[in-house]
Protein backbone atom coordinates (compact mmCIF):
# COMPACT_ATOMS: atom_id res chain seq x y z
CA UNK A 1 0.00 0.00 0.00
CA UNK A 2 1.06 3.53 -0.66
CA UNK A 3 0.14 6.63 1.31
CA UNK A 4 0.38 10.23 0.14
CA UNK A 5 1.68 13.11 2.21
CA UNK A 6 1.20 16.62 0.88
CA UNK A 7 3.55 19.30 2.21
CA UNK A 8 4.14 23.01 1.59
CA UNK A 9 7.92 23.30 1.24
CA UNK A 10 10.80 21.23 -0.08
CA UNK A 11 12.31 21.32 3.40
CA UNK A 12 9.14 19.76 4.83
CA UNK A 13 9.35 17.17 2.11
CA UNK A 14 12.99 16.44 2.90
CA UNK A 15 12.15 16.10 6.58
CA UNK A 16 9.69 13.38 5.62
CA UNK A 17 12.22 11.38 3.67
CA UNK A 18 13.06 7.96 4.93
CA UNK A 19 12.84 4.29 4.19
CA UNK A 20 10.20 3.63 1.51
CA UNK A 21 9.43 7.32 1.00
CA UNK A 22 9.79 9.01 -2.37
CA UNK A 23 9.41 12.61 -3.46
CA UNK A 24 7.00 13.17 -6.35
CA UNK A 25 8.32 15.16 -9.28
CA UNK A 26 6.26 14.74 -12.42
CA UNK A 27 5.57 11.16 -11.46
CA UNK A 28 6.40 9.65 -14.83
CA UNK A 29 8.63 7.07 -13.21
CA UNK A 30 7.28 7.04 -9.69
CA UNK A 31 3.66 6.42 -10.72
CA UNK A 32 4.72 3.69 -13.07
CA UNK A 33 6.19 1.93 -10.07
CA UNK A 34 3.06 2.59 -8.00
CA UNK A 35 0.86 1.15 -10.75
CA UNK A 36 3.03 -1.95 -10.96
CA UNK A 37 3.13 -2.60 -7.24
CA UNK A 38 6.71 -1.48 -6.54
CA UNK A 39 7.22 -2.76 -3.01
CA UNK A 40 10.08 -0.31 -2.37
CA UNK A 41 7.82 2.73 -2.27
CA UNK A 42 5.24 2.88 0.50
CA UNK A 43 4.89 6.63 0.87
CA UNK A 44 4.89 9.49 -1.60
CA UNK A 45 5.59 13.03 -0.45
CA UNK A 46 4.41 15.77 -2.72
CA UNK A 47 4.45 19.55 -2.79
CA UNK A 48 1.09 21.26 -2.82
CA UNK A 49 2.50 23.94 -5.13
CA UNK A 50 5.33 22.44 -7.18
CA UNK A 51 5.15 25.47 -9.49
CA UNK A 52 7.07 27.41 -6.83
CA UNK A 53 10.14 25.33 -7.68
CA UNK A 54 9.64 25.40 -11.43
CA UNK A 55 11.28 28.70 -12.35
CA UNK A 56 13.89 29.20 -15.04
CA UNK A 57 16.21 32.22 -14.76
CA UNK A 58 19.56 33.67 -15.85
CA UNK A 59 22.42 34.14 -13.39
CA UNK A 60 25.31 35.76 -15.24
CA UNK A 61 27.12 33.16 -17.29
CA UNK A 62 24.90 30.46 -15.81
CA UNK A 63 21.20 29.59 -15.87
CA UNK A 64 19.17 28.23 -12.96
CA UNK A 65 16.42 25.65 -13.41
CA UNK A 66 13.98 24.81 -10.63
CA UNK A 67 13.95 21.07 -9.89
CA UNK A 68 10.21 20.93 -10.61
CA UNK A 69 10.55 22.65 -13.99
CA UNK A 70 9.20 20.29 -16.62
CA UNK A 71 10.62 19.70 -20.07
CA UNK A 72 7.68 21.75 -21.36
CA UNK A 73 8.69 24.62 -19.05
CA UNK A 74 12.20 24.51 -20.49
CA UNK A 75 10.78 24.58 -24.02
CA UNK A 76 8.77 27.71 -23.21
CA UNK A 77 11.76 29.65 -21.90
CA UNK A 78 13.87 31.63 -24.37
CA UNK A 79 16.60 31.95 -21.70
CA UNK A 80 17.54 28.33 -22.16
CA UNK A 81 17.13 27.93 -25.92
CA UNK A 82 20.35 25.88 -25.97
CA UNK A 83 18.50 23.23 -23.95
CA UNK A 84 15.44 23.06 -26.20
CA UNK A 85 16.77 20.25 -28.36
CA UNK A 86 17.54 18.28 -25.22
CA UNK A 87 14.13 18.83 -23.63
CA UNK A 88 12.42 17.92 -26.90
CA UNK A 89 14.32 14.64 -26.97
CA UNK A 90 12.64 13.45 -23.76
CA UNK A 91 9.51 11.30 -24.30
CA UNK A 92 6.49 12.51 -26.26
CA UNK A 93 4.55 15.74 -25.66
CA UNK A 94 2.57 14.37 -22.72
CA UNK A 95 5.70 13.07 -20.98
CA UNK A 96 7.35 16.45 -21.53
CA UNK A 97 4.45 18.17 -19.78
CA UNK A 98 5.08 16.01 -16.74
CA UNK A 99 8.77 15.03 -16.63
CA UNK A 100 10.83 17.28 -14.33
CA UNK A 101 14.47 18.26 -14.27
CA UNK A 102 14.89 16.85 -10.74
CA UNK A 103 13.32 13.53 -11.70
CA UNK A 104 15.56 13.25 -14.74
CA UNK A 105 18.63 13.31 -12.52
CA UNK A 106 17.27 10.23 -10.74
CA UNK A 107 15.90 8.47 -13.83
CA UNK A 108 17.47 5.01 -14.19
CA UNK A 109 19.15 3.66 -17.32
CA UNK A 110 18.39 4.18 -20.22
CA UNK A 111 16.74 7.45 -19.18
CA UNK A 112 18.34 10.66 -18.02
CA UNK A 113 18.97 12.45 -21.32
CA UNK A 114 18.50 15.85 -19.75
CA UNK A 115 20.96 15.00 -17.00
CA UNK A 116 23.51 14.11 -19.68
CA UNK A 117 23.27 17.65 -21.02
CA UNK A 118 23.48 19.11 -17.51
CA UNK A 119 26.56 17.04 -16.84
CA UNK A 120 28.32 18.45 -19.89
CA UNK A 121 27.32 21.96 -18.82
CA UNK A 122 29.05 21.68 -15.45
CA UNK A 123 25.81 21.56 -13.48
CA UNK A 124 25.74 22.33 -9.78
CA UNK A 125 22.79 21.36 -7.62
CA UNK A 126 21.28 23.34 -4.80
CA UNK A 127 19.98 20.80 -2.34
CA UNK A 128 17.09 20.98 0.14
CA UNK A 129 19.52 21.56 3.02
CA UNK A 130 20.92 24.64 1.28
CA UNK A 131 24.19 22.98 0.25
CA UNK A 132 25.68 23.02 -3.24
CA UNK A 133 26.73 19.82 -4.93
CA UNK A 134 28.20 18.98 -8.30
CA UNK A 135 25.86 16.91 -10.39
CA UNK A 136 28.68 14.50 -11.09
CA UNK A 137 29.11 13.83 -7.37
CA UNK A 138 25.41 13.21 -6.88
CA UNK A 139 25.15 10.83 -9.83
CA UNK A 140 27.98 8.74 -8.46
CA UNK A 141 26.04 8.19 -5.23
CA UNK A 142 22.43 8.83 -6.16
CA UNK A 143 21.17 5.48 -4.80
CA UNK A 144 21.92 6.61 -1.26
CA UNK A 145 21.13 10.34 -1.54
CA UNK A 146 18.47 11.42 0.93
CA UNK A 147 18.41 15.16 0.27
CA UNK A 148 16.18 16.59 -2.42
CA UNK A 149 17.17 18.81 -5.30
CA UNK A 150 15.86 22.35 -5.16
CA UNK A 151 17.40 23.75 -8.32
CA UNK A 152 20.17 23.20 -10.84
CA UNK A 153 22.55 25.76 -12.25
CA UNK A 154 24.31 25.13 -15.53
CA UNK A 155 26.71 26.99 -17.80
CA UNK A 156 25.27 28.99 -20.63
CA UNK A 157 27.42 27.95 -23.60
CA UNK A 158 28.49 30.39 -26.29
CA UNK A 159 27.55 29.99 -29.95
CA UNK A 160 27.60 26.37 -31.05
CA UNK A 161 29.86 25.27 -28.21
CA UNK A 162 27.14 23.00 -26.89
CA UNK A 163 25.97 19.97 -28.82
CA UNK A 164 23.57 17.18 -28.06
CA UNK A 165 22.68 14.01 -29.89
CA UNK A 166 20.35 11.17 -29.05
CA UNK A 167 20.09 7.83 -30.82
CA UNK A 168 16.83 5.90 -30.63
CA UNK A 169 15.43 2.78 -32.23
CA UNK A 170 11.88 4.17 -32.46
CA UNK A 171 11.28 7.31 -34.50
CA UNK A 172 10.58 10.13 -33.93
CA UNK A 173 10.82 9.53 -30.16
CA UNK A 174 12.05 6.73 -28.01
CA UNK A 175 14.33 5.75 -25.17
CA UNK A 176 18.05 6.14 -25.72
CA UNK A 177 20.32 3.62 -27.33
CA UNK A 178 22.72 6.31 -26.26
CA UNK A 179 22.87 10.07 -25.91
CA UNK A 180 25.87 12.38 -26.01
CA UNK A 181 26.26 15.96 -24.85
CA UNK A 182 29.42 17.95 -25.44
CA UNK A 183 30.44 21.41 -24.29
CA UNK A 184 33.34 22.48 -26.49
CA UNK A 185 34.66 25.92 -25.55
CA UNK A 186 37.23 27.02 -28.12
CA UNK A 187 40.12 29.47 -28.02
CA UNK A 188 41.46 30.51 -31.42
CA UNK A 189 39.78 27.51 -32.99
CA UNK A 190 41.30 25.06 -30.48
CA UNK A 191 39.25 23.25 -27.88
CA UNK A 192 40.02 24.15 -24.31
CA UNK A 193 38.30 22.52 -21.34
CA UNK A 194 35.87 20.25 -23.18
CA UNK A 195 33.22 18.37 -21.22
CA UNK A 196 31.71 15.29 -22.87
CA UNK A 197 28.98 13.19 -21.25
CA UNK A 198 27.24 10.02 -22.34
CA UNK A 199 23.83 8.65 -21.44
CA UNK A 200 22.70 5.01 -21.54
CA UNK A 201 26.34 3.96 -21.64
CA UNK A 202 26.70 3.25 -17.91
CA UNK A 203 24.32 2.85 -14.96
CA UNK A 204 24.09 6.66 -14.75
CA UNK A 205 24.97 9.47 -17.14
CA UNK A 206 28.77 9.75 -17.08
CA UNK A 207 31.56 12.02 -18.24
CA UNK A 208 34.32 10.56 -20.36
CA UNK A 209 37.63 11.97 -19.07
CA UNK A 210 39.77 10.20 -21.69
CA UNK A 211 37.73 11.71 -24.51
CA UNK A 212 37.88 15.13 -22.90
CA UNK A 213 41.66 14.90 -22.52
CA UNK A 214 42.06 13.77 -26.12
CA UNK A 215 40.12 16.81 -27.29
CA UNK A 216 42.27 19.31 -25.41
CA UNK A 217 43.96 21.71 -27.81
CA UNK A 218 42.70 20.11 -31.00
CA UNK A 219 40.60 21.62 -33.74
CA UNK A 220 37.22 20.20 -34.63
CA UNK A 221 38.09 18.27 -37.74
CA UNK A 222 38.59 14.65 -38.70
CA UNK A 223 42.27 14.65 -37.76
CA UNK A 224 41.81 16.60 -34.57
CA UNK A 225 39.14 14.32 -33.12
CA UNK A 226 40.68 11.02 -34.12
CA UNK A 227 42.28 10.28 -30.78
CA UNK A 228 39.10 11.24 -28.95
CA UNK A 229 37.12 8.73 -31.00
CA UNK A 230 39.58 6.02 -30.14
CA UNK A 231 39.34 6.85 -26.44
CA UNK A 232 35.59 6.33 -26.21
CA UNK A 233 35.90 2.64 -25.49
CA UNK A 234 38.30 3.29 -22.58
CA UNK A 235 35.79 5.23 -20.55
CA UNK A 236 32.63 3.26 -21.12
CA UNK A 237 31.31 -0.13 -20.22
CA UNK A 238 27.69 0.04 -21.33
CA UNK A 239 24.98 -2.34 -20.12
CA UNK A 240 22.83 -4.71 -22.20
CA UNK A 241 19.13 -4.03 -22.36
CA UNK A 242 16.21 -4.69 -24.67
CA UNK A 243 17.15 -1.74 -26.88
CA UNK A 244 20.74 -2.69 -27.57
CA UNK A 245 23.55 -4.84 -26.27
CA UNK A 246 26.47 -3.28 -24.50
CA UNK A 247 28.69 -4.50 -27.33
CA UNK A 248 26.58 -2.68 -29.90
CA UNK A 249 26.55 0.51 -27.87
CA UNK A 250 30.31 0.45 -27.57
CA UNK A 251 30.74 -0.18 -31.29
CA UNK A 252 28.52 2.70 -32.40
CA UNK A 253 29.50 5.25 -29.73
CA UNK A 254 32.54 6.56 -31.67
CA UNK A 255 30.46 6.84 -34.84
CA UNK A 256 27.92 9.03 -33.12
CA UNK A 257 30.54 11.01 -31.25
CA UNK A 258 32.15 11.79 -34.58
CA UNK A 259 28.86 13.00 -36.01
CA UNK A 260 28.33 15.17 -32.96
CA UNK A 261 31.79 16.70 -33.00
CA UNK A 262 31.81 17.36 -36.72
CA UNK A 263 28.29 18.77 -36.57
CA UNK A 264 26.63 16.06 -38.61
CA UNK A 265 23.23 14.91 -37.38
CA UNK A 266 22.95 16.99 -34.21
CA UNK A 267 19.48 17.71 -32.98
Amino acid sequence: MVTITTVETLQDAAANKGQGTAFLGGGTLLMRGVNYGDQNVSRIVRLRQPESLAGVSSEGERVRLGACATMATILKSADVAFLHAVARAVGGPAIRNMATVGGNVFAPHPYGDFAVALLALDAKLRMSDGSELELERLLAARETETRLIESVSAMRPAGDDFRFLKVTRVKPRGASVLSIAAWLPRRAGRISGARVAFGAMAPTPVRTPAVEAALEGVSLDQNGIDRALQSVANDLNPPDDSLASGWYRKEVAPVHLKRLLLGQGTR
Binding site: M1, V2, V34, Y36, G37, Q39
Partner: peptide
Protein backbone atom coordinates in the same frame (compact mmCIF):
# COMPACT_ATOMS: atom_id res chain seq x y z
CA UNK B 1 -5.54 -4.02 -7.97
CA UNK B 2 -2.81 -2.70 -5.71
CA UNK B 3 -3.88 -4.92 -2.81
CA UNK B 4 -3.79 -7.92 -5.11
CA UNK B 5 -0.28 -6.95 -6.24
CA UNK B 6 0.92 -6.46 -2.68
CA UNK B 7 -0.46 -9.86 -1.70
CA UNK B 8 1.18 -11.50 -4.72
CA UNK B 9 4.48 -10.07 -3.54
Amino acid sequence: DRQARDACA
